[in-house]
């Protein structure tokens, strides 16, 4: 994985609570056996009209192309364990999701793929919301979101952060613990 230190992106506000994984990527698109190409189906049923054309009223169909930060309503990513959800968001150009609550499995899956999943307080959320027209920079080293004139500090899991900053692959980290795992297995067999 490439190291990730900061993200420069435009904000997209999706002020809906409990956005579940079936909205992020509906089950009928989970038939893939690869990780790529899911972006066109991110938020599929909100994004496209019945005839398949993009719905101009949906925020992701508005504004120019380019990297985005999703400022989402409370309890983002609830539901399924499908990693297709962060894969789809990343493939759609979404680099970070900010919410007042993020479901456990989604957050875990997101961070493992370099999609920043950031939890802020309702007050911080409101101050970010007020800056949604400005350019945003998320600094992972400093753990700050700079949104126009506002700077919001955040905390993400220290280990996930270190892995992202250094581009460390977690499987490699686990494989370095093979001795410990051997010993654990031997201890149980005894």
């Amino acid at each position: 994985m490439n190291p990730l230190t900061h993200i420069t992106a435009r904000a997209t506000v999706l002020d809906i609570a409990n956005i579940d994984t079936d909205q992020i990527i509906p089950a009928r698109f989970l038939t893939t056996t690869t990780r790529i190409g899911l972006g066109k189906h991110a938020f599929n049923d909100w994004r496209y009209r019945a005839d398949g054309s993009p719905d101009p009223n949906f925020v992701l169909n508005q504004g120019e192309a380019g990297d985005r930060v999703l400022l989402a309503g409370d309890n983002f990513g609830c539901g399924s364990s499908r990693e297709h959800a962060p894969w789809a968001l990343l493939d759609a150009g979404i680099r970070a999701v900010i919410s007042t609550r993020i479901a456990d499995i989604f957050r875990n899956n997101a961070l493992k793929n370099g999609l920043l999943a950031i939890v802020v307080s309702p007050e911080q959320w409101a101050s970010l919301h007020a800056q949604s027209g400005a350019a945003w920079v998320i600094d992972l080293r400093a753990e700050t979101i700079q949104a126009g004139a506002v700077i919001v500090p955040f905390k993400i899991d220290a280990f996930a952060r270190a892995c992202l900053l250094e581009g460390v692959d977690e499987l490699g980290y686990l494989l370095k613990r093979t001795d410990l795992i051997d010993r654990f297995e031997q201890g149980r067999a005894a």
Binding site: S81, E83, N109, E170, L171, L174
Partner: peptide, 9 residues
Amino acid sequence: GIGTTEVGH
């Protein structure tokens, strides 16, 4: 439940 990256782990 776990994600697919963790299935690999």
